[in-house]
């Protein structure tokens, strides 16, 4: 595969992840929390899941991305728990028991949208210069090059603002996922 082929494949998988995987991350984190994984372990399991997704050649064969994400997380978490030897009594059982309905429930769909709406909210919270550029890029759909020409700055300067934007978005997702998964876990715990 040439460099553009790799670039396109990476982009296609990232789009798929944005659409089909990210909205479920908080639910997966809530599962891991219920399995009593420590917060840093949860982060690592999630990261391992993304590593696995990054290795995919293509995603067309994955019919149920949500289920796929859950089982990836479950397998990885299971390996960790076994390796750790300190296995909470119920984790193996719970690991298998966890709901795995193939369709996301409406609250999860809403949760995904919520994250999206939150993202927009976070965009508003970006530093002025960065926000301006992120908006032109995302809402107006201009290329970095066009933005540079429009604002009379170098392309490197635009790229730097995009970088700031990406870092802010990463942080926002992490915070939102942690908060939402805590809430989901609380709901589940309250219901048991």
């Amino acid at each position: 595969m040439d460099h553009m082929g790799r670039f396109e494949r990476r982009h296609a998988i990232a789009l798929w992840v944005a659409r089909e995987i990210l909205p479920h991350e908080s639910a997966v984190r809530a599962l891991l929390r219920r399995l009593r994984l420590l917060p840093q372990d949860i982060d690592e399991v999630i990261q391992d899941c993304y590593c696995r997704f990054a290795m995919l050649e293509d995603v067309d064969h994955i019919e149920r991305p949500r289920t796929y994400f859950f089982s990836a997380a479950r397998n990885i978490a299971g390996r960790r728990l076994r390796r750790a030897k300190i296995v909470p009594i119920d984790s193996h059982v719970a690991m298998d028991l966890f709901e795995d309905s193939e369709l996301p429930s409406p609250e999860q769909v809403a949760g995904g949208r919520l994250d999206f709406l939150r993202m927009r909210h976070f965009m508003d919270a970006l530093p002025e210069r960065c926000r301006r550029i992120v908006e032109l890029r995302k809402i107006e759909g201009w290329s970095q090059k066009e933005i540079a020409a429009h604002l009379g700055i170098t392309e490197k300067a635009v790229e730097k603002q995009v970088w700031i934007g990406v870092k802010a978005i990463q942080r926002a997702w992490r915070e939102a996922d942690t908060a939402v998964s805590e809430r989901l876990a609380a709901i589940e715990a309250g219901g048991q």
């Binding site: 992840v17 990261q47 391992d48 590593c51």
Partner: peptide, 19 residues
């Protein structure tokens, strides 16, 4: 090996900002 996951996560988060 973990970097591929971090990259994917960051790229997806960025793309999720698309309309």
């Amino acid at each position: 090996a973990r970097r591929s996951g971090l990259l994917l996560q960051a790229q997806a988060a960025w793309l999720a900002l698309n309309p």
